[in-house]
């Protein structure tokens, strides 16, 4: 994608989340605002046949992967036009046929699953890879360390991407994790690991591309730490614990403003183009909402479908 397309995709996510958060009928949501650069940069480095897995913070990954915003909105609002017929919601949304193997809302729970997907790809001699996005909160879990070990031993085609927004619900990352950098966690296993600024979509994309080239070459897994920001509280149902002063710093690191600034400075973004982009993405979101609202909730009999 060119940089304008990357910008547009990040803006779509921001606009989508803003519209969603204003509603009262979404249960509760985990927003990605502030970390759009991670999902968008990463997905730009993937091929169609690759599979993306993520945590329950799934809106940016699913939209960045190219899922239809209307279908995603329908899933989040519990409508049958969602890819999972509204049964999964944000926490477990999936569309494997579109390269989005899906979210899994148990923190750290999708890491070994992603390694299993990588094992299946390796076993089939596929050139595709499996990619898992998870938060810094998952880095304390034993599942990560077990997975890193086996993935390294078996040279699995797996890219682990830590979207390090530096806070798990209300626990700052430095109070929860002893490692200096989270990419250091991969080092003992001999896994290629990089830390980048997750608010720089280009640097995320380029670092991911480099790691993925090694993975596709059969050199085993990679680990990418992206230091991002969480613009809002943990979820739409959780209170914010950071101070106003802290939030000023957080909001100053906006991936959209960062790219916009670069493009303006280079003269790539003409004056008025930003407003036009915003208008387009807002309209896209309105269409998504209309599509979702036109879809019914599942019939209550679906509580027993696809169980066994």
């Amino acid at each position: 994608m060119d940089r304008l397309a990357l910008l547009r995709r990040m803006m779509l996510i921001r606009s989508f989340e803003s519209a969603l958060a204003k509603r009262r009928d979404h249960g509760f949501q985990l927003l990605s605002s502030g970390a759009e650069g991670v999902a968008v940069g990463l997905c730009d480095a993937l091929r169609n046949e690759d599979q993306l897995l993520c945590s329950g913070r799934s809106i940016a990954p699913s939209l960045a992967r190219g899922l239809d915003p209307g279908a995603v909105m329908a899933e989040l609002l519990g409508r049958i036009a969602g890819p999972n017929r509204g049964k999964a919601g944000r926490g477990h949304m999936a569309q494997p046929a579109a390269g989005f193997f899906g979210a899994h809302a148990v923190v750290g729970g999708n890491l070994a699953i992603a390694a299993g997907v990588a094992l299946a790809l390796q076993q089939r001699r596929s050139t595709a890879i499996s990619v898992c996005v998870f938060g810094d909160g998952a880095c304390g879990s034993g599942a990560l360390h077990e997975t890193l070990n086996i993935a390294a031993l078996w040279k699995l085609p797996l890219l682990l991407v830590c979207d390090n927004n530096q806070i798990a619900i209300a626990t700052p990352r430095e109070q929860a994790l002893a490692a200096a950098r989270l990419s250091d966690l991969a080092a003992p296993f001999g896994i290629a690991a990089v830390t980048v600024d997750g608010t720089d979509v280009i640097s995320v994309r380029d670092s991911a591309t480099g790691l993925i080239a090694n993975i596709r070459a059969g050199q085993g897994p990679g680990f990418l730490e992206c230091i991002s920001e969480r613009f809002f509280s943990h979820s739409t149902a959780t209170r914010e614990t950071r101070s106003a002063a802290e939030m000023e710093v957080v909001w100053s690191r906006c991936p959209i403003l960062r790219l916009t600034g670069q493009l303006r400075a280079e003269g790539v973004l003409a004056s008025g183009a930003m407003e036009e982009l915003q208008h387009d993405t807002d309209r896209q979101v309105l269409h998504a909402i209309a599509f979702a609202e036109a879809s019914p909730f599942p019939n209550s009999a679906e509580a027993l479908s696809h169980v066994d």
């Binding site: 699953i113 390694a115 299993g116 997907v117 499996s130 997975t147 086996i150």
Partner: peptide, 9 residues
């Protein structure tokens, strides 16, 4: 976990 992921794939 690997077994489940591989099965899913």
């Amino acid at each position: 976990g690997l077994g489940v992921g591989a099965a899913a794939a």
